[in-house]
Simulated scan of single mutants.
Amino acid sequence: MLENPVWAALSGPQACFAEASGDAARFLTDVAPWCAVADPADPAGWADLAQLTEYALLTAPEIEAPPGWEAVARTPGVQMAGHTMTGVPDPDAVVLTETDVPEMLELVSRAKPGPFGKRTVELGRYLGIRHEGKLVAMAGERFRLPGWTEVSAVCTDPEFRGQGLGARLTMAVAAGILEHGDLPFLHVTADNAAAIRLYERLGFQVSHPVVFAAYRLLP
């Protein structure tokens, strides 16, 4: 299940956010850009995906599209799981809602944690830390699969980095995930050694390598 998290989410707990066709699905475009096929090695799933989109962003341990799709980008990454970790609530963290989306999008533009859309906040609980009223750090829940919830969008304004805000919010989000009965997991690019070391200190362990891959349907 963790090896194909987007499919597990879109065919399970987050099906309400999905557009689906056979063995392929994608998040609604204003929620998230991610797509999935039930089996990345099965050309039939890619044929179904072609009914949904001409541009696909996917993640899995191995992704090789069949003929008819062109690779646009491939970034190695790792998935990390918190099998035995314990979260820590943060008294300074505030719950972010739809009314905070403009500020969240501004923070994302400065901190660049990865894809984040106008409705991403609807996928789970997002927490933030403010300084003099300004949102300077946030983290939240993105993919939900049976028994697991992903920690995502961990980011800090460049002016406030080095203060441990991202670590605090990661632990606070993890605490909420554990409270509702799931285990936390997350994704990070393989070349981000500092982040991997940080997450290991927080209690996450590398579960397996993944690839973040973008493909374009050829005309």
Rank of each mutant, 00 (worst) to 15 (best):
A139K: 07
S109H: 14
P102T: 04
H131D: 03
D90Q: 00
L198R: 08
L10V: 01
I196C: 02
F185S: 11
T170A: 06
N4S: 10
I63W: 03
A41R: 15
G12L: 06
A15N: 09
E64I: 10
I63N: 05
G176N: 00
L57H: 02
Q51K: 09
S21D: 03
F212C: 00
G176M: 06
D90M: 04
V101L: 05
R168A: 10
H83Q: 02
L186C: 07
P89G: 07
D42E: 14
E150K: 13
Y199S: 04
P89C: 05
V206N: 03
M104G: 13
A214S: 11
W46K: 06
M85H: 08
T156Q: 05
R216A: 09
H180P: 13
D191I: 09
R161E: 08
A56S: 03
E179N: 04
V6E: 11
N4T: 03
T120H: 03
E200R: 15
A175T: 07
P33Y: 15
H208L: 03
M1W: 14
I196F: 01
G203I: 15
P67D: 00
P61E: 02
V37K: 08
A44Q: 15
H187W: 01
Q205S: 15
R125T: 11
A175R: 03
P91Q: 10
A32W: 15
N192S: 09
K112C: 15
A36E: 04
H208P: 06
G82D: 07
E103P: 14
T84D: 09
I129Q: 03
E98M: 14
V151L: 14
V6D: 06
D100F: 14
T189A: 08
A36W: 09
P146A: 01
C16N: 14
M85G: 13
V78R: 06
T53K: 08
T170N: 05
L105S: 14
P43I: 07
P146Y: 04
A50G: 11
P113L: 08
V211H: 03
L186W: 04
T99V: 03
P209M: 00
V101E: 02
T149A: 08
F27H: 08
A8V: 06
S21K: 10
Y199T: 01
H83V: 05
R144C: 00
P33R: 11
A194S: 07
T53S: 15
A213W: 09
A8I: 02
N192H: 15
D182M: 12
A213E: 09
Q163H: 12
P219E: 15
P76Q: 06
P113T: 11
F212G: 00
G77F: 00
P102Y: 13
P89Q: 10
L135N: 01
R119P: 01
T189E: 11
W7V: 05
A18C: 08
C35D: 12
V37D: 00
S11I: 06
S11Y: 00
T59D: 10
E200M: 05
A47I: 04
W46D: 04
W7Q: 00
P13D: 04
P66H: 12
L218E: 14
P91G: 10
C16H: 15
V210S: 06
P146W: 12
V151Q: 02
V136K: 02
G140K: 13
